[in-house]
Design a protein around this nucleic acid. Sequence first.
DNA 1: CCCTGATTCGC
DNA 2: GCGAATCAGG
Length: 175
Amino acid sequence: MSWTDERVELLKKLWGDGLSASQIAGELGGVTRNAVIGKVHRLGLSGRAKTSAPSTKARRPRVNAAPAAKKPTQQPQTVGATALKQDFVPAPVQEAKPEVEPVAELVPMGQRASILTLTERTCKWPIGDPATDDFYFCGRVSEAGVPYCTYHCKIAYQPVADRRRDRTKAVARAS
DNA sequence: CCCTGATTCGC
DNA sequence: GCGAATCAGG
C-alpha cells in the first residue's frame, strides 16, 4: 500500500492525537509501525509531547550487513481492530452482585485504554457510558488472549457452581 | 516480555 | 520515498 493523501492526512491526525505508531499502523492497515514512524519522520512531524529528557543518543554504526530477505507474509495483525471491536461487544452481564464494583473503576489515566489501545493482552472491560466522552476500557494487563484482567475476569466469569453453592468463597476470591 | 519512538540505509 | 532492521528506553 502507498501513502495516499488521505492516508497521510489520517496519519497526521492520529499522530497529533497522540496515538502510538503501532496503533496508527493498525488503524491504517497494510503498514507496520515502522512504516508509520518512518513516514512521520519524513513528514518532519516527530517529537511529540515528550516529557522524556534528552535521553540518550540513538547512535548506531549500522554495519554493512545485508540481512537475508524474509517473507513472513505481510499482514498478520491488520485485522486486529475489527476483531477487537467484536470482542467487547458482548458486554459483560453484571447481574445482582453488588459488592464487586468499587475498586475496578480506579484506572490510572495513563493506563486507560481507548478502543485503539486495546491489544491481545489488555483488559477490555468497558467503563463508563459508551455514549459519553469519559468512556474507556480498563486497559490493565490480562493474560494473552483473555479479554479481561484477572479482576474483571472474576466479575465476568462467576462460576455457576459458586453462584449458590459456596457464595462465600466466590466472593472472597472476587475481592 | 510487552511496548514505545529514533535512526540508518539498502532498496 | 519507503520501511525493515536495529537500537534504546519504559
